[in-house]
Design a protein around this nucleic acid. Structure first.
Lengths: 140, 140
DNA sequence: TTAAATGCAAAGGTTTTGCAACATC
DNA sequence: GATGTTGCAAAACCTTTGCATTTAA
């Protein structure tokens, strides 16, 4: 047992609901993500997982994060071209990205709202709308 | 001379206005970008440049695109984690990204509007707001 | 002439992949 | 026992960097 607020049993239920076969590694990755709202890179999540369970490989973390994204358990953020950030919150909201520090913060859906319906060309289906507010530290 | 609608003299004027020293390579890269509105990756732009001028290196294209972005002559789009797309249009607008094909299209500013002012934490300055509408081909 | 830009090739970092070993049901 | 998952290491990918050479003003 470790100090996570999110228990293994919760993770197992979550995986089952998503239709993902349960494994020890997937449980630990889910716990690293869902114990609290996080915005982390794959390697940061790997580091967190290793603290609780040293026998999880980097490749498994990368592949599992992709799987979780496909199942809509988490959201991929492309804030920086060289590193994907995973967001453990999937309810609709937007993001504030600090270019100087790399920090990602959530913006609530009612603080910033997207108005209008994009005319989708025929044969296309909406997947999601990403709004990223990029900020810098004062004095660029 | 080649078939570009955007002449070398236009490119030279554009570079001078941005405060960038004029070189043969930068002229060709500007012509590849500004002859028509484009959404292209660095390698795609390199390929276009090579058609007109075979003596431009890949590194110069990458470095020049970063320079142009810093000078706000073009805009960097992070639609996909493994490839930056450069947008030759800098007036405010949003983007439609086809996940299946990789295609990027512009959405006019009045078709989709962002309402609200994000509360910026003290010491932070707004850089820009990116709105990316992600779509798929029907039947995922 | 002199500072700056370029080209080449190598390094850098993140992510994916192939295949044997393993765990789960 | 059968199918799917994992681990390892290597490969793949895009992008940046160091340094000698060349170019532009």
């Amino acid at each position: 047992m470790n100090a996570y607020a999110y228990a293994s049993s919760d993770a197992i239920a979550c995986l089952r609901q998503a239709g993902i076969p349960v494994t020890h590694q997937r449980i630990e990755i889910a716990r690293a993500l869902f114990s609290a709202p996080v915005h982390l890179s794959a390697d940061q999540i790997w580091a967190k997982v290793l603290e609780a369970s040293p026998d999880v490989s980097r490749a498994t973390v990368y592949n599992t994060l992709r799987l979780f994204s496909e199942k809509r358990m988490i959201r991929e953020l492309f804030v920086d071209p060289q590193r994907v950030v995973y967001d453990s919150t999937t309810t609709p909201h937007h993001h504030l990205y600090n270019i100087d520090t790399g920090e990602v913060r959530d913006i609530s859906d009612d603080e910033l709202r997207v108005i209008g319906e994009p005319r989708l060309p025929a044969g296309l289906v909406l997947d999601e709308i990403d709004v990223i507010v990029r900020v810098r530290n004062r004095a660029a």
